[in-house]
Design a protein around this nucleic acid. Structure first.
Length: 178
DNA sequence: GAGAAGATCTCCT
DNA sequence: GGAGATCTTCTCA
């Protein structure tokens, strides 16, 4: 799923405003076999969405100030999610610049907490159904480019860093870290 | 109830 | 390359 989501479009609707970005970097997190995953030690209040239905948003708060967005991927009862680490803005860039207080497009969403700020994703969207919801969902790109996907180790974790479960579109300028 | 760590970002050197 | 910001969540007593 982490590979499948690359090249698709993250869509956020805020009233009349529409924000869109191509997903260019993801990371896979599993369950009891993945020490880096929030679900590693079983269900808790925070990670319960990871154990729920697939196709839902798992949004968590971290470092006292940041939100990160995941997509749940496994059947109910089985934990698993894909972290959206970076997107390439394609629509609503003026709005994103205001939210991020940044001038350059490259600074808007090249990191997991940057894109949630640009797209106004907060805990209010935790558990949101991405398959039926209108406020936040994932769409196909009308004219997808052929892209090569590369994998590397995940970022910002201690345990589980040996697993090459970070995926990105090769050469894309909006990937958080090369 | 206390203590520690965190799937990060920004600013500074 | 490194430290500070800042607070929720989890673990353990």
């Amino acid at each position: 799923m982490a590979r499948e989501l690359l090249g698709k479009v993250l869509v956020r609707r805020l009233g009349d405003t529409r924000l869109e970005g191509i997903i260019v970097e993801t990371e896979a997190y599993r369950g009891y076999d993945d020490a880096a995953s929030h679900a590693y030690r079983g269900p808790t209040r925070r990670n319960q969405v990871m154990f729920g239905e697939p196709g839902h948003a798992y949004v968590y708060f971290t470092y006292g100030m940041h939100y990160c967005l995941n997509v749940t991927t496994e059947p109910a009862g089985q934990p698993g999610a894909v972290l959206i680490r970076a997107v390439q803005p394609i629509k609503g860039i003026v709005e994103m610049k205001k939210r991020r207080r940044k001038e350059h497009v490259k600074d808007l969403s090249n990191g997991p907490a940057k894109l949630t700020q640009a797209f106004a994703v907060t805990k209010a969207l935790n558990g949101h159904d991405l398959t039926t919801g209108r406020e936040l969902y994932i769409a196909e790109l009308f004219h997808p480019e052929a892209a090569r996907i590369i994998s590397a180790s995940r970022i910002g974790i201690k345990a589980g860093s040996e697993k090459p479960w970070r995926f990105s579109i090769r050469g894309n300028a909006f990937v958080s870290k090369r």
